[in-house]
Amino acid sequence: MEHFETIVIGGGSAGLAAAIALGRSRRTVLVIDEGQPRNEAAQHAHNVLGNEGINPLELLSRGRQEAISYGVQIIEGAVDRLTGSLDTGFRVTASGQSFSAGRIVLATGLVDDLPAIPGLDRAWGDTAAHCAYCHGWEVRDQEILVLGLGPMSTHQAMMFSQLSPNITFINHNPSALNDENRATLAALGIPVIEQSVQEIEFDAQGDLDSVKLADGRNVSAQALVVASKMNAQASLYLSLGGQLAEHPLGTFIQVDDMGATALPGVYAAGNASNLGAMVMAAAASGTIAGAAINADLLGKQLAKVQAQA
């Protein structure tokens, strides 16, 4: 069984950044990646300093080549099993292969759980978005419908109102809109339609056209704003005995400032531990986790040498 000082599970921005930090410190590193990045549906990544508007898949391709240049090994596949501990060592099984490691980085990302509205999956990542910083400039001055789904929706309406005067709030989930939220929307001059959305409709060219409401009306739209339920992909963490932290927007793996989880030897980075992390923030958390692991390994090596002296 091949042994690595660190195995990184997940090859997105966070996982690759962790691997590069470790590779540059001459650590043996394996990255196991399923090849299903969260932002795959998007054509462009924004707020990426020096690479503004880059295609997300191109960014990851560059990151993989950088990691490989520092001796990092990368394999494609899903991790079937993760067992062990810091004391006994970790064992990872993926696509019929088994590997051992002294440290683990979980950069497994999150899943956007969307409401079951026909057509929404088709628009997601393109004309249906959740983040004003990620996609707001691209829909400036357009007709934007904010789907009222939960506690984040009013905040989204406020954020997008900075980018377009044409905002309408569709109160899809009435129980989520309290008096304070209504007062905010009124102060912003954003009209509220008290109807649920039955379907997202597209024109003959395949572009977003409108939403169909429960009363049969169609409301035209060029862009939708949707608050997904964001849940960390954390089955491997749970299998080790870890527990997830709750957030109004979903669930995540709680870490300290250096990316360490409650399980010794296990680190988490990117959206698995920070639901709101954009590309650069995710990468930064990976770099921090990689540096922390290297420092930890150095400390263990020094202690061993001193014990033998």
Rank of each mutant, 00 (worst) to 15 (best):
L120Q: 03
V197P: 03
F4G: 04
V111C: 14
F4K: 00
A272N: 06
N231A: 13
S95D: 15
A307P: 01
T108R: 09
A260T: 03
N171H: 08
A94Y: 11
A292Y: 02
V31K: 05
I104M: 10
A269L: 02
V255R: 10
D87K: 15
R64F: 13
Q195K: 05
G53F: 03
L185W: 08
S13V: 14
Q36A: 08
N271K: 13
I20T: 02
A234G: 10
S161R: 13
N274T: 10
G77M: 03
Q205P: 04
A187W: 06
G15I: 01
A272I: 01
S69D: 03
E58K: 07
E246D: 09
D126C: 15
N55H: 05
L30P: 01
A21C: 12
A41P: 03
M230V: 02
A262F: 10
L163W: 05
L57V: 02
K212I: 09
K229Q: 06
R81T: 10
L302C: 11
A214S: 15
K212S: 12
G299L: 12
L302Y: 10
T168D: 13
G259S: 03
G216Q: 06
R27S: 15
D207V: 14
A223F: 06
T83V: 15
A45I: 02
L213F: 14
A41C: 08
A67S: 11
A116F: 07
A183F: 06
V197G: 01
G216Y: 04
L147W: 00
V266S: 03
V72M: 10
G136C: 06
L114F: 11
P56I: 02
V29T: 05
G84P: 06
D113R: 13
L213T: 01
R122P: 03
V219E: 11
E138G: 06
A128S: 14
D256C: 02
I32N: 00
G10W: 09
